[in-house]
Design a protein around this nucleic acid. Structure first.
Lengths: 236, 236
DNA sequence: CGAAGCCTTGATGCGCCTCAACGTACGTGG
DNA sequence: CCACGTACGTTGAGGCGCATCAAGGCTTCG
């Protein structure tokens, strides 16, 4: 995690958290930040740590992971570039609620929580954008409760893959590639199942030509078919 | 839902959402509110409705219910007296994310969303308390995802009942009574199982003398035993 | 080149859903 | 106030979805 310098407003100008802010305001905020690099696999913060900073992901992908009392891990969400994370301050927490791990090499900005109130008060649209983000995450989490409570594994896995493709997908000549290393185990930790079941499902879909997958790699060839499975229209 | 009048600051003075506010401020806020009564079973708002108001529950209990595309219902949370609900505005939503149903006769205050910005800007501690509430709900929802993904039905049901007892429990000479009508079906919709399984579990616990339950009524006699089950220490 | 991490596939079993039937408390209206 | 309808609760039988256990192949990296 090396500190970097030379930040330009254009880096963050068009990101969700900063819509509605003037360039001068953005420069002010940027001047308060540090720029850091985290290598693939590095932990950025740990569940229960004192929350000293909040972060913006400039480039890369981050897994937000919670561990149960019995040691099972689940992936709470995946952060993509342009998103805030570690914003414990926005929720009046003084510790982080989960681990954050760099899924690939990541470039992040971070701000000391000292500056939070200053920024929020000076730039109401930032506060407002943050609330919106939190609201979205609450809705997503609630939707996941719904899925876990009412849908079968097959649907949840399909739905998760389709959502990941929408969030992080990169067009290739074959189809939509999920653009960071993701194992069967990762998918199982996102869906509340086992890596074995995920593997079987992926194999089945691969043999139907709906996906193409390999070691920590998933490409969607027929995402509408998967979307149908996700919706519960099993038979096909 | 009859409109009422004659509101006193003492009604809300000690409630979480209003800590840190002066009496004069409370009176100002109170003057903007309407007081309403909802009979047991009435729907206060429906998922997808335009969010015109936000609410404070003064007395009663409210079930927050989501319905899946296939018609299954789940109970997202139970609101107890003193809590805000329907605060779509805080999350920058313009519709409510779920149904709100009066579990018993309820007394609520409501404010037009017109007043939201005014109140939030005039009384920063209200804004701050609201963020804290949202943060707690996000954490709770996340914890539920965790439970659904990693625990077995028995644990989830035990855990839900213990939490309900902590949230709404009333001491009786027998034990802790969950203080609103709650059916087997309700519990199943909170835990992602069926009413049959809940019924079997309750019967088993009743025969061990851990709970005493009847029609829409649950009393905990040995909550520590249930807490053990919730924690996964099955054998006993 | 060995070791570790990821993936696959089979066999087996059980937790819990599903289907079914009946018992019991509530409240509503004749 | 009783009779009936409706909602809630209980309990059994059966089966399926998926976890678990087990074994082996393949890729990546030091």
């Amino acid at each position: 995690m090396n500190k970097m310098t030379l930040l330009d407003v254009s880096l963050i100008k068009n990101l969700d958290p900063f819509v509605g802010m003037e360039d001068t305001a953005l420069q002010d905020v940027l001047d308060l930040s540090d720029s850091m690099h985290y290598a693939k696999g590095k932990m950025i913060f740990r569940e229960g740590d004192q929350a000293k900073c909040f972060y913006l992901l400039l480039d890369g992908h981050i897994r937000v992971v919670k561990t149960s009392p019995h040691g099972e891990q689940i992936i709470a969400r995946v952060i993509s570039s342009g998103e805030l994370f570690g914003i414990a301050k926005a929720l009046h927490r003084d510790t982080y609620p989960a681990d954050a791990v760099a899924a690939v090499d990541c470039l992040v900005l971070c701000w000391s929580n000292r500056h939070w109130d200053k920024i929020v008060n000076a730039y109401p649209s930032f506060a407002s954008n943050t609330n919106k983000t939190v609201g979205k995450r609450l809705a997503e989490t609630q939707a996941r409760v719904m899925e876990l409570a009412t849908e079968r594994v097959e649907q949840r896995v399909a739905s998760t893959i389709v959502k990941l493709a929408a969030q992080t997908g990169k067009k290739t000549n074959e189809g939509i590639l999920i653009d960071f290393p993701i194992s069967r185990q990762d998918v199982s930790e996102m869906t509340g199942t086992t890596l074995h079941t995920v593997s079987r499902l992926m194999s089945a879909w691969e043999s139907k030509g709906w996906v193409k997958s390999g070691r920590q790699k998933i490409t969607l060839l027929e995402s509408h078919k998967l979307a149908m499975v996700a919706a519960g229209h099993d038979k096909n």
